[in-house]
Design a binder for these strands. Structure first.
Lengths: 107, 107
DNA sequence: TGCCTATATGAACAGTTGTTCAGATACGGT
DNA sequence: ACCGTATCTGAACAACTGTTCATATAGGCA
């Protein structure tokens, strides 16, 4: 068993991934940096909710910001989170295939 | 972007992993099935809190129960969760090495 | 300077979550 | 049947979380 500190950090990371809105934001960011308004639109959140969510992700250094004029470009900055997202999404795709499309034809 | 249903399911799984107590329970279960009292002791939770946590994990089919007399043996029953735990723990170990023990000697 | 746009923030609120405490259920041993 | 032990459950409660609404900051442009 990892020590208490590591378990708490891990639980924290999972906590960041556990909100659907925040999760959608991170999934969008897997494709590369995005502006706040674009993230909001892609994730189906209000711009305020998006800004609040990004603030939390920033505080945990999961995302980084690049400012250009009045725009703010956010990007995924945490390799651990990126890895977990990749694994999770790969599994989702795989499960969908074997459970819903047993013959492998999805489209 | 996966559809809304899949994102919600994913967020749900991450939510299960996001509580330190529940996370410790699942980490212990990685090693094989355990009785409730043993899980409680290993995770540092009261037996009541453990039972409540296991109830939630059972409801989400993350764990399964094998009953033998008055004992209940719990086991990890979800491959997705097991995979995420493996990845997360591997990364924790790796990060600890490169951040805290750059020369690779951990003990 | 004044206006518009992009993003950030604070307060308030509702909904959710994990814990504890007390008690219930159920099995095994005697 | 009785007792002790293992597990489960429900109610109550405090703590936390995400959203909205209103407002603030701040850059670009006329």
């Amino acid at each position: 068993m990892p020590d208490e500190r590591e378990v708490a950090d891990l639980a924290d990371v999972f906590g960041l991934l556990s909100d659907p809105g925040r999760l959608r934001l991170m999934v969008v960011l897997l494709d590369g940096e995005r502006r706040v308004a674009d993230l909001a639109a892609a994730a189906g959140l209000s711009e305020s909710a998006t800004s609040h969510a990004l603030r939390i992700l920033r505080a945990h250094r999961v995302v980084s910001v690049r400012r250009a004029g009045r725009m703010a470009y956010y990007a995924l900055a945490d390799a651990h989170v990126r890895l977990l997202l990749d694994v999770a999404l790969a599994h989702v795709a795989h499960s969908e295939m074997i459970h819903d499309h047993p013959d492998g034809r999805v489209g």
